[in-house]
Amino acid sequence: MTKPMRDFTRGELEWRPWIAPLDLNSATQEQLVALKVTPSNRAVGAYSLVLAHDPEALSERSPLYNGIMFGAKGLPRAERELGAVTASRVNGCSYCASVHALRFVQLTKEPDVMERIQKDGVEADLEPRLKAIVDYSAKLTRDPTAITPADAAPLRAQGLGDLEILDLTHAVAMFAWANRLMQTLGEPATPAREGNPL
């Protein structure tokens, strides 16, 4: 049911909303707080302005997202990004995949990993630790009720402890969320300024 996957290795896409974003000039105080808009910072993207129609949910989701993707110690940030890319690839979200593939490459300096996933999908041939992470992420994304305690063994064999497995689970789950919001409330668009052929 998912749309064809775009090439997500060549930089970020733009996102075009399907419902009118909030007009900052008519925003309530609660919406401004949820968006963290201040007099000196009014640079808010269309995605956040759409989510600001429900400021209560946005106010909780933003710190939850940050805690999951940026919390100290535990699973290295790049491997959380790998979980995000895997979920996004399975869910067909080219916008999310492009953003997080870029973050993975920035953190690891290893574009080869993302190029392989672009080419061969989540079945791509990767080094054992990354492969174990991708396999778990794909299975958790596709069918959470199919996960059993046995699925921890390949991760533990690659050195992931309880906190690392929890971190990976959170990251993959966060993209079950993000992929649905992104693909439900709008669509990716090619930035015109770059003449990007994607």
């Binding site: 989510l51 429900d54 996960i147 921890a152 789950a173 079950a176 649905r180 409330l185």
Partner: peptide
Amino acid sequence: SHAVVSLSQLISYVNFQSRVLAGLRLLKGG
């Protein structure tokens, strides 16, 4: 617009929640 965003957040959240639950069950069982 508020209701459409709320519904989208809800659908996305329950799908998120089911994955976190699966991971917690895995950790609990192991």
